[in-house]
Structures are given as C-alpha cells and as structure tokens.
Design a protein around this nucleic acid. Structure first.
Lengths: 299, 299
DNA sequence: GTTCCGCATGAATCGATAG
DNA sequence: ACTATCGATTCATGCGGAA
C-alpha cells in the first residue's frame, strides 16, 4: 500500500524503486539536500566526484517517476573547492538532469549570512548555495501568494537611490497598480515616518530568487543541513495542505518536520541509523508540541 | 606600441588579436560583462544561444594570451529564461573555459537587492548574477585587505539583541579604542541617526562571496550593465595602483571609469558607436572632476 | 530571575607533512 | 607523483556556569 507520513531507513534507490510503496505520480514536492561529493564520508561513504552523476542519475529517474506531473523538485547543493578550483560536478549534473527529461526552471540562491568562517589566500567564505528548481513540465503548481513579503523591505533599499518621480515614471510604464501603490505608500511614509505600517494585501510583493536564511547553529541538539525555514519556504510555494512532500535524503528530518507543521504529508528516506533515529525523534517532538494547539483550535 | 589608457572602437576579437597593441601577459585584470545570448541585438546582433560558445571561445583565447600569469578574469553574466527554463549556455561556457585551460577559482554571487519587483506565473524576479572568477594558474594576486568590511554588519545585526555594555565588552577585549568609539557612536546615532561609523583596521573582516550592490538607477542615458561599485570591488581586490585593467565589452565605460578613479590604467573595447561615444564622455567627465581634487591635495 | 562571560563547534579550506 | 591526515585559521551563535 502507498506510504504516507512515514520515514524509511535504507538505500534511497532501493526504496524509491518500490512502486507499491511509492506509486507513480504520487508526490507533489521533492525537497532535498543530497550528500555532496566527498562530504559526509561517515554516513554516505563520501561519493567520489567522478562517480557522482552515475550515483545520482538512477535516483533522479525514480524521483521523476514518483513526482506528479505538476510537481516540483528542489535540489539544494553546492560544489566545494578542490585544488583551488570549484568542482564542476554540480553544473554537469544540471546538464545531465535536463538530458534525463527534467525541466530546469530556476536556480534560487540561498544566501547564508552566517556562513562558516574562514579566510584564505585565494578565496572568501562561501555564503551561498544553489537551490535548483526542476519540474517535469513547463507548467506546474506555484502558489506565489503564500510567500509574499511586505513591500517595505524592498522600498527601503530602493529609497536611498531613487526619487519618488523615478518610481512613478518607472512603475506607471508597466500598466499596473504597483506604481500608484508605491507612490501612495511613499507619501504616507514621508508624512508619518514613525508609523508602523499595516500592510494590506496589495502592499505585499513577490520575493526574489535570492533567499536569506541563516544556517542553524551548531549548538542545537539536532544539527541539520539546512534550517527549517528553507523547506518551509518551498513547501508553502509549491504545495497546498494535504499534499505530499518527499525528502529522499532526510537527514535529521527537517523537511518532514516542516511538512508536518504546515499540515502537509511527508515521506522521508534516510540511510544512516543515527540520522534516522534523530529524524524520528524530531518528528515526535513537533507532534507532541503541536497537539495542544490543535485542541485549542477545534475545541 | 602597446596601448594604455585607451578605448578602442571595433570588433573585440580583431583588436584583441593585435599583439602589438595588446602584448602577451600585459593586463592584470579583465573585468567584463559580455552581451548575453539573444540580448543587445542592436550592437552585437544578439548572439544566438547555440552559437554563443563558438563566438566566445576565440575571444577568451585572446584574453588568456593578454592576461598576466598572476592576473584574474571576472566574467559577469546571467542566463535568461527561455521557454520557461534557464538557458544552459553559461554553465556550458564554464566547462568550455576550463577545457581551454582556464582555472575556475570561484563563482561570486552579485546580489542585486533593489531589483524592481516583477511577477510571472512560474518565477520570481531575478535578483542575482554570476561573477565567475577565472585565472591562468592556481596562485594569483589577491589583495584582500583592500575590500575588508566592518565586523559583520555589526551595528545593524547586533543592535537589537546586544546592550551597549555588550558592545564595549566585545570590542574592548582586543585592546583598542573601538569600545569607546562605539559607545560614542551609539550616542551619536540617537542624536544624528544618519552618522556613519568609522571602524578601525582591526575590526574589519573579509567579505564573503556574496556581493550586495544595488543596480544603477534609470536616470542615466544608457543603463549600465553593472554599477560602478562592482568593477571597483574587483579592481581593488585583484590589482594595485598602476596596474592595467581591460574590459573587452566596455559598454558605457563603467570599468574604465572605475579603473581611472582608482589610479589604475584602463583599456577598453566597444563595438557600437553610441556606447563608444558615451564611454569617452563618461571618462572625460570623471577626469575633469578628479583633476581639481588632485590640485588641492598637491598644492 | 537576569545579565554577563567563557567556550565549544559547524556540509570550511589550505598548506604542510606523512605514507 | 599520488592520496590521506592534521593543524591553524575563522566568526556567528547558543549553552551553561558565574556574578
């Protein structure tokens, strides 16, 4: 029978190949961060760079099988330097996935302001990672309203370098209400600069393809590859309540936790025992935390 | 005779091939933003995607010839979407340049925070561009001290959660006057909120590989490919005064202007007449602006 | 109960040293 | 001439003991 809200321990490829457990066109979103080449040596054996594609492509074939036609696949990855150069296996993977039939819609930039420290002769700290967005078709589900941000964030940045006339000129040229909204907003800001603006729906704008989320700090009990905000953002953007979210490299369970908290169904696969146990614990924890809230709401 | 502080009008490849004008191992930095595929149709005929590599690779061969052994090549580029997908010619170009013998050191992310809101069904506005860093060898010149930034955006990020005592503790621990300065600065901030703190040398840290520069505003005649801050940053990082900076796709002259203002020597090539003229004008303008400053200083 | 301060450590990276 | 391992370096953050 098809699995739902379950975490499996085992080899990613083997479990994904079981068409009874995970049928064709079953999940709405795949959000994952696979082990990077030569990283996580203990848990995944450290996939060598030159074998990365051969290792990943059979898995992505199965991912394509289980993903719905209008679903999305978000791949968080970043190549590390080797011998003073960025490795090329990630961009080779993009090309290979396209050959496999995936649609490369976008490359989001996850900007990690609190990246790992370091200073070297030839490079600075690496503060960003790729979040590659693949789909099975040109059109797909995307709920942009769920991730809108207040226009203030943007306007503040722009305010210094652009006059109000510039706004009006620019925005009125593309026949939208934005120009008028921005103009009104700016006037109010000037009249009541200390006001705390209450934004109405039309004062929210779409975010960009740069996502600013801090990495989780090391001292927390459960270390995770990415902070819960990252899968949360993509889950809101690409799924609705009741949809199914799969993470084939679940790690400590962040994707499943985010899915649960957003009332989505989760599926997870994790090879290593201690990560698997940690994922179960983390899920248990949020479930016990969430129950009282539900009772309050319903009763 | 070898050219210096000169802007040429003509075909990039032809002018770069003239070994007398631009000798081997001549320039310290190449900083450029080439026409993107199918863009700048008027000036470059809009290089088709499938011919981009064939067009670019002969040029980059010459760039490799003229670049010093310890020099750097910064390529600012971003692929646009086509048929709902990001195009792949840029990542193919990275692979091709490596085959050509270039060393792919790093991919800097230029984060354009103030890019104007836009909304499409399947994507958000594109707020970042690649700044690909190539060299001829594993080791190269890099003057990191020239681009240090104040300790982690300090005031902005810490202000909320840190008391003034914390500031003083933090900063006085390394035996300087910063603690006192910061204390004064905080008080001044309350009185003169627009003041800018001047930090001491030892409280600067290296930046990361994410660069936050705003795009230039619309009031200029031609919109520049990048703001002057972008070449300025790379010129400071990879060259010293008196070094030579080349931009083979000069456009409106931003790279040459930045080089001149930093007392570097510039070389530029631009195919299109009106861009060429604008570059000359922009250079003229900064030269007349800068001279009085010099006179004041020396006399 | 709060605030203050020491400290550990994270998908890090390089260069030197060892096998 | 390879790869493998180790130490030094770096900064944001939260934990826990001390004041």
């Amino acid at each position: 029978m098809a699995a739902i809200n379950e975490v499996f321990r085992g080899e990613c490829y083997d479990l994904l190949s079981d068409t009874k457990t995970i049928p064709d066109n079953y999940v709405d979103l795949i959000m994952t961060s696979p082990p990077y080449a030569n990283k996580r040596v203990k848990s995944y054996g450290g996939i060598p760079t030159d074998k990365y594609l051969n290792w990943f492509l059979p898995i992505s074939t199965q991912l394509k099988r289980v993903l719905k036609e209008d679903g999305s696949f978000i791949l968080n990855i970043k190549e590390h330097p080797k011998n003073g150069e960025r490795q090329t296996y990630v961009i080779e993977l993009i090309l290979a996935l396209r050959k496999q039939g995936w649609f490369w819609v976008e490359e989001y930039c996850w900007y990690k302001k609190n990246s790992f420290p370091g200073k070297w002769n030839n490079r600075f700290r690496d503060s960003w990672e790729r979040c590659l967005h693949f789909t099975k078709n040109k059109s797909f589900k995307m709920y942009q309203d769920e991730v809108m941000v207040p226009i203030g964030d943007w306007a503040k940045r722009r305010f210094k370098s652009m006059s109000e006339n510039d706004y009006i000129r620019y925005t009125s040229s593309n026949q939208s209400n934005l120009g008028r909204n921005v103009s009104n907003w700016l006037k109010r800001q000037q009249v009541y600069p200390h006001n705390v603006m209450v934004f109405e729906k039309e004062h929210y704008i779409a975010p960009s393809n740069v996502l600013e989320f801090s990495t989780e700090c090391s001292n927390k009990n459960h270390s995770a590859a990415f902070p819960v905000e990252l899968p949360t953002w993509f889950i809101k953007l690409f799924t609705k309540e009741g949809d199914i979210v799969l993470d084939p490299f679940l790690g400590s369970g962040t994707t499943a936790v985010a899915s649960f908290l957003l009332n989505r169904n989760y599926l997870g696969i994790e090879k290593q025992e201690d990560y698997y146990q940690e994922a179960l614990l983390n899920l248990q924890e949020v479930k016990t935390l969430k129950k009282p809230d539900r009772k309050k709401k319903s009763g």
